[in-house]
């Protein structure tokens, strides 16, 4: 199969869904290429990501799914020797624009990482970190934000009596929800999640998955996962990445029940990866 046919398929897949047409697109990626030195990690990516949905990105290790996610808030640029071409429009503005500050972008787009990474500070200070660095100092307002964010991440009841304790004193699953709460504290528009449950036990995983379902009412969520069942359970749309390319992007039920591409089928049926 040559690349031209793949492209048409993707385009077809992107334009077909009808009920999504009313939703606004948060991210539209156009002809994105990315290199780590000489390694061509992302190739001609075109993707539209829509509001208030959970979009899952799946694919085998090294397929570029995490790289793509980190490109959406330009965290990938922290790696030296990264070069990009193409455009990513967030709410209509190209994030690679010279006058688009990364800090501004990241204030609108939150991120949750693979390994829970709370700061070695109290739970309260973890949540208040974002508002504080963006200039909110009023203690009363901070108190409100902390409670609201912890409630939003469904962990308020577990930690409300130990807000001043170090965030490292709680379990890994709780830490990850603290990290989600920390992201919610600046009320972002989009939340990027990079395999957020890969370091967690099944019960904690379940809690995070439920949380993602609730959060999508208010936020657009893009989640990278190596766990196909997870993608199937929680996402509305799924993109399958392979060797730096988007092989297929469609509604999750379509991808899992009736994939258009042989390679997608092979991957989700566990033949490789």
């Amino acid at each position: 199969m040559n690349t031209a046919t793949i492209k048409t398929k993707i385009n077809v897949a992107k334009s077909i869904p009808t009920e999504q047409a009313v939703k606004e697109s948060v991210y539209s990626t156009r002809q994105l290429n990315l290199w780590y030195g000489n390694n061509h990690a992302l190739k001609n990516i075109d993707l539209e990501i829509e509001e208030n949905e959970v979009t899952a990105i799946i694919g085998p290790s090294g397929c570029g799914k995490s790289t793509y996610l980190k490109t959406l808030n330009r965290m990938v640029e922290l790696v030296p020797s990264v070069k990009t071409s193409g455009e990513i429009h967030y709410r209509g503005r190209n994030i690679f624009d010279a006058n688009y500050g990364v800090e501004e972008l990241r204030t609108r787009v939150g991120m949750v990482f693979q390994k829970p990474n709370p700061f070695p500070k109290s739970i309260y200070d973890n949540i208040a970190y974002g508002p504080r660095i963006h200039g909110i100092k009023n203690r009363k307002i901070l108190d409100e934000i902390v409670e609201k964010s912890l409630r939003g991440a469904a962990i308020w009841d577990e930690v409300k009596d130990r807000l001043n304790e170090n965030a490292y004193g709680i379990s890994g699953g709780q830490q990850q929800r603290i990290c989600i709460a920390r992201t919610l504290a600046i009320e972002p528009d989009v939340i990027l999640m990079d395999e957020p449950t890969s370091a967690l036990d099944p019960i904690s995983t379940l809690k995070i998955e439920e949380l993602v379902q609730e959060l999508k009412e208010q936020y657009s969520i893009i989640i990278v996962t190596h766990n196909m069942q997870q993608a199937a359970r929680i996402s509305d749309k799924t993109a399958f990445f392979l060797n730096g390319e988007v092989i297929e992007y469609d509604r999750t039920d379509t991808i899992f029940s009736n994939p258009a591409d042989k390679r997608t089928e092979d991957y989700i049926s566990g033949r490789f990866g």
Binding site: E103, R106, Y129, C179, I186
Partner: peptide, 25 residues
């Protein structure tokens, strides 16, 4: 490095990250 990443991902600047996260740690 995860602490740096977490800070940058919140929209913190380099200096904020240094003063509030890296040096205290």
């Amino acid at each position: 490095g995860e602490l740096r990443d977490a800070s940058y991902a919140m929209g913190a600047t380099r200096w904020q990250t240094i003063v509030r996260i890296i040096l205290p740690a």
